[in-house]
Design a protein around this nucleic acid. Structure first.
Length: 382
DNA sequence: CAATCGTGGTT
DNA sequence: TAACCAAGATT
């Protein structure tokens, strides 16, 4: 159905188009595998315009693989703050340490070596090897699957691994000799600029003439993709704990666990409210919320007295929607008897474990998820 | 395979 | 405005 003639046409026209239309992007100004690597990790599920300022800051702060490997993890997370999917940052640094230890600090180019690095999957492996080393490897991302599913009329669910591996094989038959780097980027560039998800610009597409989807009027209905499940709602009560005594003028923050959602990031103390009977914090009487918050935090060894409602906040992750009621609280100095129940309260006072008392200006030293930055901004500006 | 893991822009 | 989307990896 698709002869080598149409394939050759596709590859050649695509390369010619790319040469003229490629964007001037920061990571395209070098062939340094480290730059390509960092950009590819940042670009996962993230728009180019969002990545650009992060890329500049990251390369300035961590100019080499060695400097990244040597840095404290908190510094790396701070540099990633606001970009999302924070495991990318943690894995990137872990991989930098792998390269330092296993490959003398030099980025490898072999398939098994690259794929063996943390955070580098099939796509990123192909992207680094083709773009940085000009090796004929397939880098099949969302853009590429969209372009290929349309040009070759592949009516299979692109969410399935099998579809991606099939397209990887297809790509390998398309890469012109010695042009792997440009071809990979051209394929993605076409998906980003011309063969867009909605309203593809077929009239200015360099390969429109032999695009099967276009010829059959199916360009708008491809690729086929299963719908994502809507995020499940969660209800959380959040505390802005104001310090007393030596901690006067400060608030309490804590560091999240090393795994899971927002791993390793800092946050305001908060508790989940069991969602029975639709008890949305916004709808919950403030008195009820404050009593619940006080009791729940004391269970976790954080003795506070809620004072009043600050704001409601909503934050949507890929799979969870947080509905938050935020309350100003006063740290409660607990009498010795009660201290036993709140066993770890003393730990916060000494600043041990994963808790800190901070001033507003200390925020720049800790990496916070976006939702807490928004809340703290409102709090500190009022 | 399907769920987990952020955020902001576009339609 | 709600839904969809953006250069995916890990478990």
């Amino acid at each position: 159905m698709h002869n080598t003639e149409h394939k050759r046409y596709f590859s050649q026209e695509l390369l010619d188009w790319y040469e003229i239309n490629k964007r001037d992007l920061p990571w395209r100004r070098h062939r340094d595998p480290y730059y390509i690597w960092v950009s590819e990790i940042m670009l996962q599920q993230t728009r180019v315009d969002t990545v650009i300022p992060y890329f500049h800051r990251f390369i300035e702060r961590f100019p080499t693989i060695q400097s990244l490997a040597d840095a404290p993890e908190d510094d790396v997370l701070k540099c990633w703050e606001g970009l999302g999917y924070y495991s990318r940052a943690r894995n990137l640094q872990a991989a930098a340490r792998q390269v330092t230890e296993q490959y003398d600090g030099v980025m490898p180019s072999g398939k098994d070596e690259v794929s063996g690095l943390k955070g580098i999957g099939p796509y990123t492996s192909g992207a680094i090897r083709s773009i940085a080393f000009n090796i004929p490897a397939a880098a099949v991302d969302g853009n590429v699957m969209r372009v290929l599913s349309r040009y070759f009329l592949i009516e299979e669910d692109i969410m399935k691994v099998k579809t991606r591996t099939k397209m990887e094989e297809l790509v390998l038959t398309l890469v012109p000799d010695g042009r792997a780097s440009d071809f990979t980027q051209a394929l993605m560039e076409l998906g980003a600029l011309i063969c867009t998800p909605k309203s593809p610009k077929c009239l200015v597409c360099p390969v429109m003439e032999h695009c099967s989807a276009r010829l059959e009027g199916k360009e708008e209905s491809l690729p086929i993709k299963t719908k994502a499940k809507p995020p499940r709602p969660e209800y959380r009560l959040t505390a802005i704990v104001e310090g007393t005594g030596v901690h006067e003028g400060k608030i309490l923050i804590r560091k999240r666990p090393a795994a899971g959602l927002l791993a390793g990031m800092w946050e305001l103390p908060h508790v989940i409210v069991p969602a029975d009977g639709g008890s949305v914090p916004a709808a919950m009487p403030e008195e009820t919320a404050m009593v619940g918050l006080r009791d729940a935090l004391l269970e976790e060894g954080i003795p506070v007295q809620p004072i009043g409602h600050v704001m409601d906040a909503e934050h949507t992750f890929s799979h969870i929607q947080w509905n938050m009621g935020v309350y100003r609280c006063k740290w409660q100095d607990v009498p010795p008897a009660a201290l036993q129940a709140a066993e770890s309260a003393a730990a916060y006072e000494t600043g041990e474990e994963n808790f800190r008392w901070i001033h507003v200006q200390d925020m720049e030293r800790y990496a916070f998820p976006n939702v807490f930055i928004r809340i703290l901004k409102v709090y500190f500006s009022s």
